[in-house]
Design a protein around this nucleic acid. Structure first.
Length: 428
RNA sequence: GUGGCUGUAGCUCAACGGCAGAGCGCCACACUGUGGAUGUGGAUGUUGUGGGUUCGAAACCCAUCAGCCACCCCA
């Protein structure tokens, strides 16, 4: 490729084939969200940097956001996530909305990171949130939406699993072990890294953070305790609700789930591929009861999750669950142009067919018929029309079924009906 | 921000110090009113860029740019 200005690093071009996949994903997400009564909404792509300061992770804001100063001198960012925008929208109209409200969204986001497998700088994200309900059953419904999505696309619990924990439960444990509040963010990321480090290194790292040997032993025991959720009334109710929703097979308690974002306050969850070959979480979410108050609204409980399009697409691809029969070309009909003399007649016929509700491509210039038929094949047309001298003088057109090769000559007014017959698969 | 790998035709890649190639795709013809198949022929390159070593560099060295992968972090 010569002298083509390259795309921006970490962005993806969506050729029609890829766009068809993205649209399929979007349609699937919409069906699932709507089946739970969620309403679609959208926020601006540009937000002030202030919206994210102190509410999202520090690295997310300081290192990973696309920030620029606009012509008026304001600090603007390309949104790195949606939840703060959601909090803003709700806070602005808090008195006029009907709670609990259920909202979903699918749109583009940007994070300035080094691209690699499963991570791009521009990505699409599905957000599903419920605001105004603080019950564990609300949390369960939120998890149920994404478990239902997994079911809908054909993923099984052998392939993907939703891991759940609760920050309140973790905090109670850290209280018990006398871990100072100031150390907890560091301890959280230490817990998060357990799988990635060798056991000795992980313990040494814990001692560096200032944990005592007794605390490390206690925390290790806690992380291995698969029954720990029984000590949390919220977790007990959560799993009961998940069971009632018929989705227990997709959900599992895991005390090592902590989540990076600061605003989570209760239930937290992530989804992972079971085999672990794709070492990147598919999505993350949880309860964030303080965020509304933090952006200036009245306190309002909330729960939600976000799923990026990149990792889920990798997973679906790996398990052969991306649809292969997506319609890339919308027009099943091609009108050929016999010669320059008859080009306008072809245009008239094509226009007439469109008025009758058909999607029609007309070849844009006179060319040899073999070339035009070859083109019809390539674009996946199912019917080709020929308007040559023989047909034209009688006001007729040749209508050819490209899959069978059969051709009928009909009056031009009857062409639409003949085409419909072929498209409907009715033998002529 | 740190580290590793890779840049050759439109695409996938070969050539690994001695004439820059193959497959696929593309174009033409066989087939001047009908596509998919087949056959024959044809076009296509500053070997990412800049410098160096050498009689000779796509190959070796340095720099640079880009892509991929991993760390970090996260959707």
């Amino acid at each position: 490729m010569k002298n083509v200005i390259p795309p921006v690093k970490g962005t993806r071009d969506f050729y029609p084939e890829q766009m068809a996949v993205r649209t399929w994903l979007y349609n699937t997400l919409r069906q699932v969200a709507e089946s739970f009564g969620y309403q679609e909404w959208e926020a601006p792509i540009l937000e002030t940097l202030d919206l994210y300061a102190a509410k999202s992770g520090e690295e997310l804001v300081k290192e990973q956001s696309y920030v620029f100063t606009d012509r008026g001198g304001d600090q603007i960012t390309l949104r790195p996530e949606l939840t703060p925008s959601l909090a803003r929208l709700v806070a602005q109209k808090q008195g006029q909305l009907t709670f609990p409200l259920r909202w979903w969204s699918f749109g583009p986001f940007w994070r300035y990171e080094r691209p690699q497998k499963g991570r791009t700088r521009e990505f699409f994200q599905w957000n599903v949130d419920m605001l105004g309900a603080d019950s564990p059953e609300a949390d369960a419904e939120n998890v149920a939406v994404l478990a239902t999505f997994f079911e809908r696309v054909g993923l099984t619990p052998e392939q993907v699993i939703i891991l759940v924990s609760d920050r309140r439960l973790m905090d109670a444990q850290l209280d018990r072990f006398d871990v100072p509040k100031a150390m907890r963010p560091a301890v959280s990321s230490w817990i998060d890294r357990r799988e990635k480090l060798a056991p000795e290194d992980w313990e040494a790292y814990g001692r560096e953070l200032g944990l005592t040997n007794a605390q490390i032993a206690n925390l290790k025991a806690m992380l291995g305790d698969k029954e720990l959720w029984r000590q949390s009334p919220e977790q007990v109710r959560f799993y009961r609700a998940i069971e009632a929703l018929g989705l227990s097979h997709f959900v599992q308690f895991d005390p090592s789930i902590v989540r990076g974002l600061l605003y989570y306050t209760g239930t937290v969850f992530e989804a992972w591929e079971v085999g672990g070959e794709i070492r990147r979480s598919i999505l993350g979410g949880g309860r964030y009861d303080n965020l509304l108050a933090d952006v200036g609204g009245d306190p309002l409980p909330a729960v939600g999750f976000a799923m990026g399009d990149v990792v889920i697409t990798l997973i679906l691809e790996k398990y052969g669950l991306l649809p292969t029969d997506l319609q890339v070309n919308p027009a099943p009909v091609l009108v050929t142009v016999f010669d320059e003399e008859r080009q306008l007649a072809s245009l008239r016929l094509a226009a007439d067919l469109r008025r009758k509700g058909l999607n029609v491509v007309c070849y844009p210039e006179a060319a040899k018929l073999p070339k035009q038929f070859k083109y019809a094949d390539r674009i996946g047309a199912r019917v080709a029309l020929v308007l040559g001298p023989d047909e034209a003088e009688k006001g007729q057109a040749a209508v050819k079924d490209l899959s069978s090769g059969e051709q009928v000559i009909v009056q031009q007014e009857a062409a639409a009906a003949a085409i419909r017959k072929i498209l409907a698969g009715v033998p002529s």
